[in-house]
Design a protein around this nucleic acid. Structure first.
Length: 424
DNA sequence: TCTGGGGTCCTAGGACCC
DNA sequence: TCTGGGGTCCTAGGACCC
């Protein structure tokens, strides 16, 4: 059996841990740039606010009632880590699936004890971190997702729902569940399944796996097997190094100034370099992209990207930033108002496995070590003194690409200076 | 004024090889 | 009238996730 442990309305719950006045009120957390809603309390859901709703399109009466906060990723990331640590007390098999969800393996545990374990897990996480979680237990990951959904929605479960492969509860839940509510089935697949007469999870479970595979691919076929209780979905090793690293942001306001784009791209390149070194990889190609605001079709539209190969795989921010700058020059056009720029590192390999190409002069060992020390020192200073204490180049004040985040709460768990805030 | 950011996996199709 | 067959590798794009 496997448990899916999912934090309830995670970002909102994090905010509530540090500000109990938010309890019982409609609370929303906004995306970067305060653009749209990415987390909602139950009270906000009841007001009919959809996930992803654009902030500037919210009706005035909702804006008056609701508490809308900028996202505080430093806080959420740290709280997530604490929840994960707590889960480790209950099983040696914890797969962190996202910032607010983990699969916890209960292979070999006495099934009769699982519901009680689930309850104890909930209570423990709540007590140790302040975060409420729901627990779905089932023989497969897809069914554990279904169980988790039931644990959240049906009060009688009290936050913990255990489903077996073929029980009465499983059948009745699957019969009621629209197929697009399943993990791995979204709108596109849902539309095509509907044409085949498959609209509920139960109907998909009863479908012929071969037929599903022919019509789609192995992905939906695996879901059929999982619904029947045969494990077919295994997660890749979540701790494995990323195969690509992306850093991109929408700008705080549109800009056509090349200096703005250059600064943004340089910052993104630096952040990407940090991520790259943290996982001990090197990159051999840097992709840069820019685009205008697609939500303003009346304005001239432009989007472009370019891949800049590196002479030699590296993890040096200076090389990455230089390549990114060249890429930007290649695709930048005057006369447009840009909304977003991004940097992506491609062709990642483990450091130490880097290959020399035939025509390059090998970097001397001393030079390599010198670079490594420099980057290591910058990363260390930034870790210890706070992000961006040391960086290449200093952005101008009031640059257009700076994020808007006017409603961010203090980073309670990672910044002393913000924890002790004296209001005058 | 104003609409997020960062990933993975799979498949189809082209290039290329013998 | 007629133009092989099978394999690998790579890339672009689709679909999905939170």
């Amino acid at each position: 059996m496997i448990a899916l442990v999912d934090c309830n309305n995670f970002y909102v719950s994090c905010e509530r841990v540090f500000d109990p006045r938010l309890e019982g009120r409609p609370v929303g957390v906004l995306s970067n740039n305060d653009g749209c809603i990415v987390a909602r309390s139950n009270e906000l859901k009841s007001l009919g606010v959809e996930m992803g709703a654009a902030m500037h399109l919210l009706p005035p009466h909702i804006r008056r009632q609701a508490v809308l906060l900028s996202s505080n990723y430093a806080l959420y990331g740290d709280m997530s880590r604490r929840v994960t640590l707590s889960l480790g007390e209950f099983s040696p098999h914890v797969e962190v699936y996202s910032i607010d969800e983990s699969f916890v393996g209960f292979q070999g545990f006495d099934p009769a004890t699982l519901e009680a374990r689930g309850q104890r897990l909930r209570e423990t996480v709540k007590q140790w971190t302040g975060i409420p979680v729901s627990v779905g237990l089932a023989p497969t990951r897809v069914l554990a997702k279904v169980a988790n959904r039931a644990a959240k929605k049906i009060p009688a479960y009290e936050g913990v729902c255990l489903l077996d492969a073929d029980g009465v509860a499983t059948r009745s839940l699957l019969r009621e569940l629209p197929v697009t509510e399943l993990w791995g089935v979204a709108r596109r697949t849902g539309e095509r399944l509907a044409l085949m007469g498959i609209e509920t999870a139960w109907q998909l479970r009863e479908a012929d796996p071969k037929r599903i595979r022919r019509a789609f691919s192995v992905v939906p076929e695996r879901i059929v097997w999982e619904l029947r209780g045969h494990p077919a979905v295994t997660l890749g090793d979540m701790a494995a190094p990323k195969q690509q690293i992306m850093v991109s942001r929408s700008f705080g306001r549109l800009t056509g100034d090349p200096a703005d784009l250059h600064e943004a791209v340089r910052q993104h390149a630096a952040r990407a370099g940090e991520k790259l070194r943290r996982q001990g990889s090197v990159t051999s190609a840097v992709m840069v992209f820019v685009h205008t605001n697609p939500f303003q079709p009346s304005q001239p539209q432009y989007r472009n990207s370019v891949v800049v190969p590196l002479a030699r795989p590296c993890d040096d921010t200076r090389d990455i930033a230089h390549a990114a700058a060249r890429g930007l020059e290649a695709i930048f056009l005057e006369g447009y108002r840009y909304q977003k720029a991004g940097v992506m590192l491609l062709d990642l390999t483990a450091d130490g496995h880097r290959q020399l190409s035939l025509d390059e002069t090998p970097q001397t060992e001393a030079e390599r070590i010198r670079r490594q020390r420099l980057m290591g020192t910058i990363d260390k200073l930034n870790r210890e003194l706070g992000r961006d204490k040391v960086r290449l180049g200093v952005p101008r004040q009031d640059n257009a690409w700076r994020l808007r985040c006017e409603r961010r709460t203090p980073r309670y768990t990672t910044r002393w200076s913000e924890l002790v805030r004296v209001k005058s």
